[in-house]
Design a protein around this nucleic acid. Structure first.
Lengths: 349, 349
DNA sequence: GTGAAAGCGCTAACAT
DNA sequence: ATGTTAGCGCTTTCAC
């Protein structure tokens, strides 16, 4: 392994100067700098990350914690994070914290989770942390603030931590208002189930948005119009079969809490011989990569952009900015495609 | 930050003993060990990863390089890797090397790719590397062997490197043989396109398997029965529209090179009013999470297991084993569901 | 602008 | 089984 001393020898300077030149510090004359760069290139020298980190206290590595590693949304966020980090010369260490593991016991007793907070994050291997959709308990929050490293949470709010979050309530209202504007009054909701409540009660917020939008339109939400599923296509499919098969309700539209459930609903409707959107309008939330293929109307929340934005904030903080922690609302956008249309028999067009 | 000296003081031993005790070395008396552990717990001491790595040369971190971060297959592999690594107390640093970037220029001129091999992997931040579906050029292979760290490739073979790979040719033959056994003779193939050839010519191998299986059955592959797509649902859908709309061919079965394309084919067939499998049988490759939902017959390649297995091999090597590099064939399994059935008019049942 | 030297916090010989 | 000590390879004062 080539070390800094060799480069210093070849360039005819001290190791200190090599370090400065290669780190891009300003206090090096252009001539010296290029001699050092040439020497480094010639020897194929690359700084040892560990030695550098130990001496400087900076790792150029960011930890990312995600609750699910195989859901489209989290992967999209991760992709945005990875890209931005790589471009900034940072490594990304991936931690996965399955929130369903140990759900029966209090969160603080989940051993994997404890281990992450008590060990992994305290070994000084990361300069900062991005937590995606993780609701942290008091002890975890404390342990994060204790290590005094920048933390950005996606999905929030998290007390004492800078977060980015979607206003789930508003997003849901927008989706339902879109359906109301098309003349629908019998609007069902495919909500996320229990297992996902850990993430800032996202299912509850979206459900509340549905209820509020209906209430404002003078409609009393019917409990039979509310079905829960697990955010997947298969889950949305099954829930929709139940919903459409129930003789007591006659929805003309479905608002699904995720695009994947909405796609499942479209497939179920088709299998039951209902045309979308003629017989049934369907809207989701996310901006899933498949939504365009299925012509699904959705509220896009730009997950990849969320990841990029989180990195941007983090890099600013690593540059010395210490913004007061707070919550920033994430952008979203109604994307109308062909899965929603006027309510059957509606006068509105 | 609590350092080792404090723990040593509290436990009344030297730092060396603390280091040994906490590392689980055998040469520490049980009594001393538990005193050290108590002291460490009391002080909330966690070793500094950087200091430890610098002194020992071991990082307990593994790098993983994937070509696509948003394809189901790679994520499934990544999930398997992450789980196993975490259980073994290893961190995982994720590198993403989009093979499409810079495709117009030779691989060795892709700057991101160069940077990964010339810098990131040489900074000594990882103990080992897992490369998923990456065909490496001479220079890259050399740079990997030069750093003398264990490397396991998933998808291969890679000269001089230990690899795990699916026999794409055999898998394709199995899929086509399944269709032939059902009496099909007009079997089309949805192949992966150009962009994926970089990965060990996987599309070419699967196509060759299709051709060979047909040839063995005395059937001459018809070029019009071969369509290419990009491995996605949308791509498979479009390619299938083209295929089924072409008046010159009359396939009774489709062998798709991936489950996602097969699902696209199923949706296209349905939109064209063809029943699956009565009018058209469809088979894919992968074992995609949606294959069960769509009742898709497929050849499962257990991607998550592939990831776990790669880690297993790596950990063995890190324990001192130096197996000769070679290629290990990965298991696969035909999973028959309802998307394949007897050929129309076939006597076989 | 550059050099000398003192660590960064730990591990691994080498002793005992 | 435990202590002593010399680094691991770099960055950063502090001088000049």
């Amino acid at each position: 392994m080539t070390k800094i001393q060799k480069v210093a020898d070849l360039a005819g300077v001290s190791t200190a100067t090599v370090s400065r030149a290669l780190a891009g510090k300003s206090s090096v004359s252009p001539a010296t700098r290029s001699r050092v760069e040439d020497a480094a290139r010639e020897l194929g020298y690359v700084v040892s990350a560990n030695a550098s980190s130990l001496a400087s206290g900076k790792t150029r590595n960011v930890g990312v914690v995600v609750p699910f590693i195989d859901s489209w949304f989290f992967i999209a966020v991760l992709k945005g994070i990875q890209r931005s980090l790589a471009d900034a010369g940072y490594d990304l260490t991936l931690y996965h914290l399955d929130p369903n593991v140990g759900q029966d016991r209090p969160v603080e007793e989940n051993p994997r989770r404890r281990r992450l907070f008590d060990e992994f994050l305290r070994r000084g291997r990361v300069d900062a942390l991005i937590a995606v959709s993780l609701e942290l308990n008091r002890a975890e929050l404390d342990s994060l603030t204790a290590i005094k490293k920048p933390v950005v949470g996606i999905g929030g709010p998290l007390p004492g931590i800078q977060t980015l979050s979607l206003d789930d309530h508003e997003v849901a209202r927008l989706a339902v208002d879109h359906l109301l504007a098309l003349g629908h009054r019998e609007i069902a909701h495919l909500a996320g189930d229990q297992d996902f409540e850990i993430d800032f009660h996202l299912p509850a917020h979206r459900r509340a948005g549905w209820e509020e939008a209906l209430a404002r339109a003078g409609i009393t939400p019917d409990p039979l119009m509310l079905r829960t599923a697990d955010f997947t296509i298969a889950g949305g499919y099954d829930a929709t079969l139940q919903l459409l098969g129930d003789p007591r309700v006659h929805p003309t539209a479905i608002f699904a809490a995720s695009d994947e459930m909405a796609i499942g609903a479209m497939l179920a409707a088709r299998d039951l011989g209902r045309s979308v959107p003629e017989d049934l309008s369907i809207i989701g939330i996310d901006g899933h990569e498949l939504s365009d293929f299925f012509s699904l109307t959705t509220v896009d929340q730009f997950p990849e952009v969320q990841g990029r934005h989180a990195v941007e904030i983090l890099l600013h903080q690593l540059d010395g900015d210490r913004p007061e922690p707070g919550n920033e609302a994430l952008p979203y956008e109604l994307v109308v495609r062909k899965s929603t249309g006027p309510a059957p028999g509606s006068s509105r067009r």
